[in-house]
Design a protein around this nucleic acid. Sequence first.
DNA 1: GTCTATATTCCGATAGAC
DNA 2: GTCTATCGGAATATAGAC
Lengths: 190, 190
Amino acid sequence: MSVTREKILELGEELILTKGYNGFSYQDISTAMGIKNAAVHYYFPSKETLGTSILKTNVQRFEEMVENMQNRNFDEWHQLESFMKIYLKSNRENKICLIGSLGTDINTLNDPMRVELQKMVDRIVSWLESILLSGKEKGLFEFSISAHDQALQILSSLIAGLQLARILNKSEFKNIHQSIWEEITPQNKK
Amino acid sequence: MSVTREKILELGEELILTKGYNGFSYQDISTAMGIKNAAVHYYFPSKETLGTSILKTNVQRFEEMVENMQNRNFDEWHQLESFMKIYLKSNRENKICLIGSLGTDINTLNDPMRVELQKMVDRIVSWLESILLSGKEKGLFEFSISAHDQALQILSSLIAGLQLARILNKSEFKNIHQSIWEEITPQNKK
DNA sequence: GTCTATATTCCGATAGAC
DNA sequence: GTCTATCGGAATATAGAC
């Protein structure tokens, strides 16, 4: 796969996370790369094909991470920690996440992008749910609501945590991150 | 104040919550009102003056709600409930909230809008914090983290809850709403 | 296959009509 | 004071050069 294409995907993702899907243009990408905006159209005919590709790349990256963690026999606690580290990194870079960013613009996206976004969120929620459930059975986590609801709760905190931190103060995110652990860490381990 | 101006403010807010700040144009507003887009510029010279006015209107609405609840001697539980009802209504209307929507676009906003957004979030967080603190002292709420962190936690759940519900399924929001109460309701009241 | 010159549409905004 | 005709520029996208 061409290096130009890779670079466009990378820049496009970064722009979605910093300026929002409707807040950036092909010009932003082409200027950063020293080419004309139409060159971007060669690789991604429409903005929506670019958006869809970015989403698919992210789902793939997520699946690779999950597979990798299973191969290394990460326990549920470390799997959750690894997932949260993605958000800690985004916070350091003053970015929000794809879900929060594209969630705002969802009514302006075409069907393929919307479907891909739904698939991504679905996949993450069900993975979180399964991690929480088996982790709870092992005594690694403790919570009283359903694993599904707890998954939604954690994901919400992470998504909006990044948004709030960017509005208020970058450092607020570590409080949110901390609170998530407080919430699901068993009493005897506190 | 002119009724046209009021209507523009109303439509503008609705568009921010449904299509995002960078996802709507003055054309969207003027078409819905049966006027030319330039007529909107008469009331709000730039899109940013409109955005700033929408934010200020919202802060004012919030202050009025708080004042009203204090006048009626709402206890902390009912105050929090009233606040959450705003989000339940937004969910029914398939909208997200101003914080989540403008949080995505923050890097594309001008200073006045950014400042106003910060002020709004600041105000809501500190109000939530104070409600949680005094409610806890009365035994209406129970939580182990700081009131500030608990406020961030609740606000995050509400903000991203709306976003997730719109992506996945409208009805998921009631689970998130329920989980928030589960988290802070005293044991003896469950 | 890769990219540029160019077209088209739409956006935010101004000058001026009523 | 209220709104319309119109502009300059930016956005997405196509046709065609290398």
